[in-house]
Design a protein around this nucleic acid. Sequence first.
DNA 1: ATCCCCATGTAATGGGTTACATGATTCA
DNA 2: TGAATCATGTAACCCATTACATGGGGAT
Lengths: 185, 185
Amino acid sequence: MSLPHAILTALLEKPSSGLELTRRFDRSIGYFWSATHQQIYRELGKLEGEGLIRALPSEQPARGQKKAYEVLPAGREELARWTAVSQDPKPHRDALLLRLRAAAVVGTTGLDADLRRHRELHARQLETYREIERRDFPPGRDEPEDRLRHLVLRAGIDLETFWTQWLDHALAEFAELPDMPERQE
Amino acid sequence: MSLPHAILTALLEKPSSGLELTRRFDRSIGYFWSATHQQIYRELGKLEGEGLIRALPSEQPARGQKKAYEVLPAGREELARWTAVSQDPKPHRDALLLRLRAAAVVGTTGLDADLRRHRELHARQLETYREIERRDFPPGRDEPEDRLRHLVLRAGIDLETFWTQWLDHALAEFAELPDMPERQE
DNA sequence: ATCCCCATGTAATGGGTTACATGATTCA
DNA sequence: TGAATCATGTAACCCATTACATGGGGAT
């Protein structure tokens, strides 16, 4: 139940059309709450129906036409309410860890290539985050909003750092391991 | 598409009934691939239909009766195939980070209490992991299967360590922040 | 007998993913 | 005018979540 609130946040930061939102979900918000354009359009329709946002009164709302939305006061209130309310952390799901556990039973054949690939993906994401940090949070500025957003970015940086290091560790273990073909018991 | 493979792994480690599987998902496998008993029963039915597992031929399969399953050779092959195949990492979704970003716009009221709560939950999970490590991986043993499973546990330990530290950091920032009521712009 | 817990399920709902459809604009 | 791209959507399917249902066994 967080997609609508992700959209409200993004729209408060800057009123946008569906496609602009989609692009911003690919870049920034989506780093910790991903969404496809289909989800976004569906949700924009719902939010408008509930009176939390409205289409900016400009062009004709025909099919191929841009339609920008802005947040209404009710939407801002809903977001503030949701932000303040206590929520339990969702249980994780990590397919790579699951595959390692499976590999302990059926053998590690083929896994290390993918571990290397994941390592590179995480390293690249880490580099992306560091660029954003250099660009958006140069030393010196410290408005409260900046500090909060920087904190979020820091979580991303530290998580990607963890994963690259852990994968290095895992690959080192793999190098020492006997090949572990899948043994029929 | 990983739940069936999580179940195959668990059943290879030890043939079990639906409820036993549910309990083990609550304890160990579920730490990185959670599932409820409804999901598990549904999936057990599917896996049996596909000929990947079978019910152990023992008791009568009446409604209130235990029914244990074991993995068939086809199931082991499917798991080995899935383990070896390259997979893209799924995009994350983290509601807490999203709430922080929302807080940068609508104010931080009420958030720090929940940050503290999350910190305690992560600290407790970390303690659980450390106990498992002491119990299951005492110094000295290093069968290949153990090293893989230990590697997975290490990921859990390091992730929880990261979160407790990051939340400490976040709470320290909050303490310094002006109260940031939600300002209407 | 009744109550509670164990064990296996069914049904309804909702969100996410993938594939496809349609109109508008731009450019060769 | 035809192709490519932008922009907004629809539809179908799958998976996860929540609530409920049913039967068996043990304890008081």
